[in-house]
């Protein structure tokens, strides 16, 4: 089922010197329910702008964005769209509004008018969903980046959205924190959540059902990870293959008769054990 549709969408703005910047150019795509979509691209390729167009934080200057059939440009739709399309940002510190975890989680549900008893029940449920039950009364400030980001996810989950967008939400985390957030995402996907994941970590993108590569505001690649990683153009967009795939490819180029596009270490090990 299609839940997000972009038709010839463009977004322009003027920088402080008055030059027109085209952050997103003529993008058309649809996203289906339950998909795990990774959006890749170099720094400044328009990934974040695209993400903000999906929950009406930005409105397209050209074309139409529809979410659940609702046009994001219509102010009457804002409430339904933002309630259903949650967003976790890059810097875990800059998206928390309260000094206590449960207060922060309650912020979204309070804003959309959920009853008190229901909010309290949801807090328990979302903290469990992100594996942070024992932190209900803790102060986010003292937590690790991974824990803070999980609290941010909990705050979004408490509004019961259909889609969650992660806008480079793992880029400031250590490997442990990244792992924690990825685990939460996998759990959400199992329960039918639609996830749009913006990153430049190829090892994370491997997990997605679909990868969209942006460059200079336009979609330059769109497909399954295997198709994207087999594409020779990747370096043109400042991207690199996941390390495992890179090793496999070089071994293949060096004369080893193996599959050069494996993405998992186990698969590569298996291939090599067969040969050596």
């Amino acid at each position: 089922m299609e839940i997000i549709r972009l038709e010839n969408v463009g977004f322009q703005y003027k920088d402080y010197e008055g030059n027109v910047i085209e952050a997103v150019k003529n993008v058309s795509l649809t996203i289906d329910k339950g998909q795990f979509v990774a959006v890749l691209g170099r720094n400044g390729s328009g990934k974040s702008t695209l993400a903000k167009l999906l929950n009406a934080l930005l409105l397209p200057t050209e074309g139409v964005v529809t979410v659940f059939g609702r046009d994001t440009s219509d102010a009457d739709n804002l409430f339904e769209i933002r309630k259903n399309v949650g967003m976790v940002f890059q810097n875990p510190d800059n998206q928390m509004v309260a000094s206590i975890v449960e207060d922060d989680i309650a912020f979204g549900p309070e804003n959309i008018g959920i009853e008190r008893e229901e909010i309290i029940a949801r807090i328990e449920w979302v903290l469990k969903a992100v594996g942070m039950e024992e932190y209900r009364y803790a102060a986010p400030f003292k937590m690790s980046g991974g824990q803070k980001q999980r609290i941010a996810v909990a705050g979004i989950l408490a509004m019961k959205p259909e889609v969650i967008i992660f806008d480079e939400s793992t880029s400031m985390l250590d490997p442990e924190g990244r792992g924690e957030v990825m685990d939460v995402i996998k759990r959400l996907l199992k329960e039918g959540m639609t996830v749009i994941f913006i990153t430049h970590d190829m090892n994370e993108a491997v997990e997605a059902d679909r990868i969209i590569v942006l460059d200079k505001g336009s979609v330059v690649m769109d497909g399954k990870p295997e198709t994207i990683f087999a594409d020779e153009r990747l370096p043109l967009y400042n991207l690199k293959l996941p390390l495992v795939t890179r090793i496999a490819k070089e071994l293949k180029d060096g004369g080893l008769p193996i599959n050069g596009s494996v993405t998992r270490l186990e698969a590569l090990t298996e291939e090599l054990c067969r040969l050596l």
């Binding site: 170099r42 880029s171 400031m172 430049h200 370096p235 400042n238 991207l239 690199k240």
Partner: peptide, 10 residues
């Protein structure tokens, strides 16, 4: 290299 894209890291 934190926050840079893959080529930027290299």
């Amino acid at each position: 290299s934190a926050g840079l894209d893959p080529k930027g890291k290299d």
